[in-house]
């Protein structure tokens, strides 16, 4: 059984159909890329999975359970973590605190426990800090843990978002254009990181413009255009699909114009 499956998902804004009967599935352990020209509805699909939007119809199942109508934090709790296309860190807080945000949903201490600092609460805080250290070391940011998030470079901020997502102990991580704004060196490191995440047994769903990265990182690609799925399959199959080539040639011109 697949880890995540979308079945005929539809989302409209006003009169505009942003996502039109899209179905695909992500198997556990895979790295899957969701690609398509600008404005194709990729981010909308992500926001449907993470609960920021609710589908008008269709079904989204994660580990056999529906995520439809659940709030984003609940979906994080179920095991899906995400990053944002435009970096959304807690800029005035320290790097380690940003990561602790991800730990939050795995912690339980309530107001009373915090007030009198029960042994359980202290143990939990300590454990959260260990988790934070582990994921920060994983993305190689532990040395900067005490800095404020805003002082990091753009590429490192993207890594911090990934670390925050990993801290929630997800089984599926959704990365929205993680290579955006990165230079070649950083992109190469990102590819390595994605493989490392996958090696930990975490399934990855990726939106990305950098085709080089997508082709090398992903085992499976889903291509959407105008909110509709036009192709699905292994990278080399998709690459030679005439519809995909057509869609991308069109979009290349647009991108050049920008």
């Amino acid at each position: 059984m697949s880890l995540l499956s979308l079945e005929k998902v539809v989302k409209t804004f006003g009169g505009l159909t942003a996502v039109n009967r899209v179905s695909f599935s992500v198997d556990a352990g895979d790295v899957v890329g969701l690609i398509g020209p600008n404005g194709a509805g990729k981010t909308t699909v992500f926001n449907l999975i993470t609960g920021n939007y609710t589908p008008d119809s269709g079904e989204i199942l994660f580990e056999g359970r529906s995520v439809k109508g659940k709030k984003p934090h609940k979906i994080v709790d179920m095991g899906i973590a995400r990053t944002f296309q435009s970096i959304r860190l807690f800029q005035n807080m320290s790097v380690v605190e940003n990561v602790l945000a991800g730990c939050h949903c795995r912690m339980k201490s309530g107001i009373f426990a915090s007030m009198i600092r029960t042994p359980g609460q202290r143990r939990e805080e300590k454990k959260a800090l260990e988790t934070a250290k582990e994921v920060l070391e994983f993305v190689d940011l532990w040395e900067s843990a005490g800095l404020s998030a805003s002082s990091l470079s753009y590429g490192k901020q993207r890594l911090l978002e990934i670390a925050r997502a990993l801290a929630s102990r997800p089984r599926l991580i959704i990365l929205d254009e993680p290579a955006g704004g990165m230079n070649d060196q950083e992109t190469a490191e990102l590819l390595h990181l994605i493989r490392e995440i996958s090696r930990k047994g975490i399934t990855v769903l990726l939106i990305e413009h950098d085709m080089g990265l997508v082709m090398r990182a992903c085992e499976k690609l889903v291509v959407i255009e105008y909110g509709t799925k036009i192709a699905e399959g292994r990278p080399e199959e998709v690459k030679n699909n005439p519809r995909v080539i057509e869609a991308y040639l069109g979009s290349d011109e647009e991108e050049d114009a920008c």
Binding site: P72, H73, D77, R82, F90, N92, M93, G102, H104, C105
Partner: peptide, 16 residues
């Protein structure tokens, strides 16, 4: 504090 900084990101990080 997460909520004050960025509510959407807080919710997306698993905070109710």
């Amino acid at each position: 504090n997460y909520i004050k900084e960025d509510e959407t990101a807080a919710e997306g990080s698993g905070i109710n």
